[in-house]
């Protein structure tokens, strides 16, 4: 055993302190909002005077919370469709770009990734103006199209990363053994990049679920989205159901993350 010197101890203290601080900043708000969601009180006050499931019951009431439910389903549907379509497009684009080494491919790559950098607010406004020039009315499909643009790059980026890590010799071996390109893609490329695609889909889905800027411009009263609805409730009534929604969202994300880890962890174990 080696004795730890004074500087080791100081180092450990400082790192520990920073980590603790980081966790505090990240986790404390979550704990506060969850605690608040179980309050008996009428207001969003912390700490809650007493605990109950009152606001969850209220939130799941099919009549009184109907608009929230509609908005939630809209959000899930838009996120789901945009993620699926975005994944297909991104995987195809990433495959094409890794196959070409021309400078034009670099240019395309940059432009496919640009929505990650472009302020979504400007894009939301631009999309609204563009679609109204074309005479297209707001609808869920329009929202899907809008979200698609801002979330597809997540899948594109993770897929590109796993493709560049793929050993090209594997595909040569596949061809050498008599496999067609498509067969090699199905049995070699796809299984090996699947964890990357899944991770990208997860990020894309989450970022669509809590996207405000694009939804703000492209939705109307009929196509309300959850984050917009929550903001509305916040402004008008300070309804405690918001905290309950936040609680549900946090729980759902946590579950999704566990599922993701199981899946990609599994595929990682299979492919590593």
């Amino acid at each position: 055993m080696q004795r730890s010197t004074l500087s080791d101890v100081t180092y450990n203290w400082i790192v520990g302190l920073l980590a603790g601080l980081g966790i505090l900043i990240l986790v404390a708000p979550v704990i506060i909002v969850i605690a608040t969601s179980f309050t008996t009180s009428q207001t969003l006050r912390f700490p809650p005077p007493d605990l109950s499931l009152r606001w969850y019951r209220e939130l799941f009431d099919p009549v009184r919370s109907a608009p929230i439910h509609t908005a939630a389903w809209n959000s899930v549907w838009v996120a789901f469709v945009a993620t699926v379509v975005g994944a297909v497009l991104s995987v195809l684009a990433a495959l094409a770009i890794t196959r070409v080494s021309r400078p034009s491919a670099r240019l395309l790559e940059a432009s496919f990734l640009s929505p990650l950098i472009l302020p979504s607010l400007s894009y939301g406004l631009a999309a609204l103006m563009f679609f109204s020039v074309l005479g297209i009315r707001p609808s869920l499909n329009l929202l899907i199209a809008g979200h698609l643009v801002v979330i597809a790059p997540f899948v594109f980026r993770t897929t590109l990363a796993s493709l560049t890590q793929l050993d090209p010799a594997l595909l040569e071996a596949s061809a050498n053994l008599g496999a067609s390109r498509f067969y090699g893609f199905r049995r070699i490329t796809l299984p090996l990049i699947a964890p990357g695609i899944a991770a990208g889909c997860f990020l894309a889905f989450i970022s669509s679920m809590d996207n405000v800027p694009v939804s703000l411009f492209l939705s109307n009263a009929r196509t309300g989205m959850l984050p917009i609805r929550m903001w509305g409730m916040m402004e008008s009534t300070l309804d405690v159901r918001i905290a309950a929604i936040a609680g549900v969202l946090i729980l759902a994300t946590l579950l999704l993350m566990i599922v993701m880890d199981r899946l990609t962890g599994l595929t990682k174990r299979m492919s590593a």
Binding site: D167, L170, E172, A173, N176, L177, G178
Partner: peptide, 17 residues
Amino acid sequence: SKREIGIVFQNYALFPH
């Protein structure tokens, strides 16, 4: 894929999954 030539690659290129 049609040459019927077997290759042993330098790092074997075994399919990891």
